[in-house]
């Protein structure tokens, strides 16, 4: 489901009663806060090139990762405590002084982040979450801040009105992530074809740099988001097709990061519904005919 948080008139959908595998939220930038003034020198040093906007440019505002995480996690934690939260982001937190692990701290809740992998970080976060089978109550939070305190032409096409975030529940239908490194653009179709044949999805959600796959129903994720794009699209698909029979049973989400030669996919599949009218299984007595 998708919620708009912090807007003057939030377009908030009613909370579903059942846990959702995907929950997307948008945070209006106009309701954000500026990075602290003390951060500007640090940003200037940590970043290369032309790190700061010229004097007179408006102070960039956005939503801190900790605030976005809290909004998304509150409804999840209402149904019970989480054991693991893995954040995934492409652009850094506008205010990195605030420890998200500290902000979300609860006894025995492990919180950390993966990043520096472009649009593939959310896939790694799902993979990492699966590496803690002893912490099965887990959430992955994908965070996109469209604003950084320096000029970055790569970000010019992003949604300037909203920060975006998506919460994923790995235990609610996400199958193991598959990742490939060193895949050049001309080889993407060769790798993706057999991979999709193995996944056999009803629908493929593609990141912006991917070619349409032959032989599969597909749709493209929004081009003005980063890590959240394909997963927000998955949330929209699941939101829009809640009627029984309409919702695809298997949706494969695919993303490609050209700069890294990285390709990743993960399939969400609807949980099997319990059979209601099974005939009783006849009891087999251990007699001479059926005993091995």
């Amino acid at each position: 489901m998708t919620a708009v948080i912090g807007a003057p008139a939030p377009l908030r959908h009613p909370e579903p009663t059942a846990p959702q595998p995907v929950r997307a939220a948008r945070f209006p930038r106009s309701a954000g806060r500026p990075a602290g003034p003390g951060l500007r020198p640090m940003w200037a040093e940590r970043l290369t090139g032309d790190p700061l906007p010229p004097p007179g440019d408006p102070e960039p505002v956005g939503h801190a990762f900790a605030d976005m995480c809290a909004e998304l996690l509150d409804p999840i934690q209402a149904s019970g405590p989480l054991e693991l939260v893995v954040l995934a982001h492409v652009t850094p937190d506008l205010d990195p002084r605030d420890s998200v692990a500290g902000a979300l701290a609860e006894p025995d809740l492990l919180v950390f982040a993966v990043s520096d992998q472009g649009r593939l970080a959310p896939f790694t976060a799902l993979q990492v979450a699966a590496a803690w089978p002893d912490r099965s109550r887990a959430a992955v939070i994908v965070l996109d801040q469209a604003v950084v305190p320096y000029r970055d032409p790569d970000l010019s096409a992003l949604d300037g009105r909203f920060d975006h975030a998506v919460a994923l529940r790995p235990d609610l239908g996400f199958e193991p992530v598959r990742q490939w490194a060193g895949v050049t653009g001309d080889r993407v179709a060769d790798v993706l074809g057999p991979a999709l044949a193995a996944e056999h999805p009803d629908l493929v959600i593609l990141g912006p740099a991917l070619p349409p796959p032959d032989g599969w129903n597909w749709c493209r994720a929004p081009g003005d988001q980063l890590g959240t794009a394909v997963f927000a699209a998955l949330g929209a698909v699941l939101d829009d097709t809640t009627e029984i029979g309409q919702r695809p049973r298997r949706v494969t989400v695919v993303e490609y990061e050209p700069a890294l030669g990285g390709l990743a996919l993960v399939t969400w599949s609807a949980p099997a519904r319990p059979a209601r009218h099974l005939a009783p299984v006849p009891e087999l007595l251990p007699d001479r005919t059926n005993r091995r």
Partner: peptide, 9 residues
Amino acid sequence: VPPSGPHAE
């Protein structure tokens, strides 16, 4: 410290 350069590098 998370920011360690432009996000693409």
